[in-house]
């Protein structure tokens, strides 16, 4: 099929169904935007995970007695525990936090709230804060080493606390993906419908092509190119939307938090990469949808 004929057929097809074409482009754009945002959310959540696991510690809280009687961990019980911990494989630095230090931190943490006034140093345990060099095996090794030992009140793995947060973020991610999926289904159906309408409005042309013996390829190509072009435009719009979202929303809202390293920033390269990916994805998905539609529903 000659390029001139193809481009004329495609552009007339897109213009003839302009409202459908616009709907198809927008739906494709929105669903690809959701997919792209979903991917970036996953990426960010993974980054958050990496950011925090490095900072997480295991806290070995000491009993009331030991906490009160041994403010600098030189007594036999605390000293022994500290030695045991330090010689446990997978453990890095072990830091002692006395009741007084815990109290200071507590006051800072709850400054201005009534609990801060009520708390007294004696009511807080002193802790041995264990940093891990081996994130995988470390926690169990620590537990095995000091669980039920004299002077140990409780072993708190910060990971367990954070795990709940990650579960929540994982849920958010799944919801984002489910929505993107629903959007994608809607987009695919709309593309399919648009191709059918397009084939119907051009049934005379298609009939002529068939009758004079044009190849199936010649007959189908304008529709496929139409769908693909709409998909590419949709993908490009989605990409632009993602970039706009980064600059106008994410950077504005989360910029300060990201700066203080509470959550990792959304990297521009990731956004650019995702945006660039959405364009071919839009084109390919739309083209395939068109192809399958023509095979199944349209006699061409």
């Amino acid at each position: 099929m000659r390029a001139a004929l193809l481009s004329r057929e495609v552009s007339s097809g897109l213009r003839r169904n302009i409202t459908m074409t616009v709907a198809m482009v927008l739906t494709t754009a929105v669903s690809l935007l959701s997919v792209g945002a979903g991917l970036l959310i996953v990426r960010t959540i993974d980054d958050i995970g990496a950011l925090y696991t490095d900072r997480l510690e295991i806290q070995v809280a000491l009993t009331q007695d030991t906490s009160s009687n041994d403010p600098d961990c030189t007594g036999p019980i605390c000293f022994r525990l500290r030695n045991v911990l330090e010689s446990t494989p997978g453990v890095g630095e072990v830091r002692f936090e006395s009741q007084q230090e815990a109290y200071t931190r507590f006051k800072e943490l709850f400054a201005g709230q009534s609990v801060a006034d009520v708390a007294r140093p004696q009511s807080l345990p002193s802790t041995l804060r264990v940093q891990l060099t081996d994130q995988a095996a470390g926690p169990d090794a620590v537990r095995a080493a000091v669980a039920n030992q004299v002077g140990v009140r409780e072993i708190i793995d910060q990971r367990d606390v954070v795990a709940k947060l990650f579960d929540f973020l994982g849920g958010v991610r799944n919801v984002a993906f489910a929505l993107a999926l629903v959007q994608a289904v809607a987009a695919v159906l709309l593309i399919s419908n648009t191709v059918q309408v397009s084939a119907f409005t051009r049934r005379t042309e298609v009939g002529v092509m068939r009758l004079v013996g044009a190849t199936r390829w010649t007959t189908q190509l304008p529709f496929l190119v139409e769908a693909t072009v709409a998909g590419l435009i949709g993908g490009a719009l989605a990409g632009v939307g993602l970039l706009a979202g980064k600059f106008l929303v994410v950077d504005d809202l989360l910029g300060a938090i990201a700066q203080s390293n509470v959550i990792p920033p959304v990297q521009l390269t990731d956004v650019l990469l995702t945006s660039a990916l959405l364009v071919p994805v839009g084109g390919v998905v739309a083209g395939l949808t068109g192809y399958v539609t023509l095979r199944l529903y349209v006699k061409v």
């Binding site: 005379t204 002529v208 068939r210 009758l211 004079v212 013996g213 044009a214 190849t215 199936r216």
Partner: peptide
């Protein structure tokens, strides 16, 4: 086979009551 159908149709001219012209 289906891919040979265009070949067949190229050997057959066809006209109908309703002309089927592109308006």
């Amino acid at each position: 086979p289906r891919r040979k159908v265009p070949k067949l149709r190229q050997r057959i001219g066809c006209v109908f009551q309703d002309f089927r012209l592109l308006a």
